[in-house]
Design a protein around this nucleic acid. Structure first.
Lengths: 149, 149
DNA sequence: TATTTTTCACTTGCACGCAATTGAATTGCG
DNA sequence: CGCAATTCAATTGCGTGCAAGTGAAAAATA
């Protein structure tokens, strides 16, 4: 096997580990978030909003690395359920500010139980976490090695 | 701030780091995969098929942690482009076997360039990789601490 | 053997995720 | 000031991702 072919195998392990980990994480949160009626990305939006209300769609997107094509419909769904309120900024009519409604704020109380529950569920998954950790360690090492030449 | 509220903040860092890393990875691959005309999950399917041809839809899904609702249409799109061939298993008519076509096999030559190109692009992202690594380390530690009691 | 259960691929419906485009508002430049 | 360039949210189109349900085939059980 050539070195190039070998790197294709390495690639398959590395990129796959990160890819799979992202989805696995989502799956772990799902049962807990179902209780809140939120999806994983919606939960992330609330984690941001509970810290700081009245952000623009753009700044929300920047914090979560999501673009308006994803954020806009997501926020509209939350608005439809009465969890957030959208308001055009009178200072700059291009922008839309997102505020929590009382219900959206109230959701935080229920959400407080989520992190512990997820951590408990993850307790049986040490191996998977380690696999990903080691994969990243290898990736990191290979980056150093590569630029070291 | 209560311990519970604090854990909500920790949660926001941890789950977000893994979430964002998955998408960031996808974005890194995108430009190189565009050259092959493949999406990231399609690339993963080929990484598997280049190693072992003629798998069932089910076993493909198991390896990639994707269910048939995702795999089936994905494979059909690849079939439509002449990169794979689907064939019902005569031994067990429930199953569908996926084979590479000559074009699908030929794609591998182009793909050999992908891993190095991605690694080069990632060279400037040591910090991001480290952030994720450290986040996982903390998560791992908190799992030990929790079950240690 | 006849019937129930299980296993598969497939489909539908919904929610992302992102590229590309649109249109309105603002900014910047001559 | 006036016009071009930029910024922003929204929309469209396509490809995942997954839950829930369908129907055919095989396996298990009576």
């Amino acid at each position: 096997m050539t070195a190039q072919e070998d790197s294709l195998k390495l690639d398959s392990m590395l990129c796959f580990a990160v890819y799979a980990a992202g989805h696995a994480f989502t799956r772990f949160y799902k049962p807990r978030l179902d209780a809140l009626g939120l999806t994983y990305p919606q939960y992330l939006v609330f984690l941001v909003l509970w810290e700081a209300d009245g952000l623009t769609v753009k700044s929300l997107g920047e914090r979560l690395f999501l673009d308006s094509g994803t954020i806009t419909p997501l926020i509209k769904r939350l608005e439809g359920r009465g969890l957030v309120r959208r308001e055009r900024d009178s200072e700059d009519e291009r922008q839309v500010l997102v505020f929590l409604t009382p219900q959206g704020r109230a959701l935080r109380e229920k959400a407080l139980a989520v992190p512990l529950a997820v951590r408990t569920a993850l307790a049986g998954e040490r191996e998977a976490v380690d696999t990903l950790r080691l994969g990243l360690q290898k990736l990191r090492a290979s980056l150093d090695e590569q630029s070291g030449r």
